[in-house]
Design a protein around this nucleic acid. Sequence first.
DNA 1: AGAGTGACTGCAG
DNA 2: ACTGCAGCCACTC
Length: 119
Amino acid sequence: MIAAIPRGRVSSYGEVADRVGLPRRARLVARVLRETPDEAALPWFRVLRADGRIAFPPGSRGFREQVRRLAAEGVLVQGGRVDLARHGWERDLDGFLWGPAAFEPPGASKARKRAAARR
DNA sequence: AGAGTGACTGCAG
DNA sequence: ACTGCAGCCACTC
């Protein structure tokens, strides 16, 4: 299930559990990830907490590594968290509303809405 | 059996 | 938006 998370998208422990038919088993997903060797080459870094925050302690080695890997595929982490409305699996709001416009600078969305309101 | 632990969640303040 | 806290499940001691 984790291997199926598309590049540039993220999911959560709970969502992964749900998708494999194991509701309320978020902690089990976390355990599996912890026990999985790096050689498995799973995109573990695409799994976040339900609110979009990185599960590792801020500043820890795992935390920094996760930020680095996410950034490498265009997923910005700010204040330790990812915008799920933008990068969440199956809830790619920008993609749905505006097409695969990819990445815009902060505030671009607001500015666009203001412009639309003026018309 | 009972208490403690954690790459988690949802909700109340 | 942030912090606690109870609830949760699968172990471990």
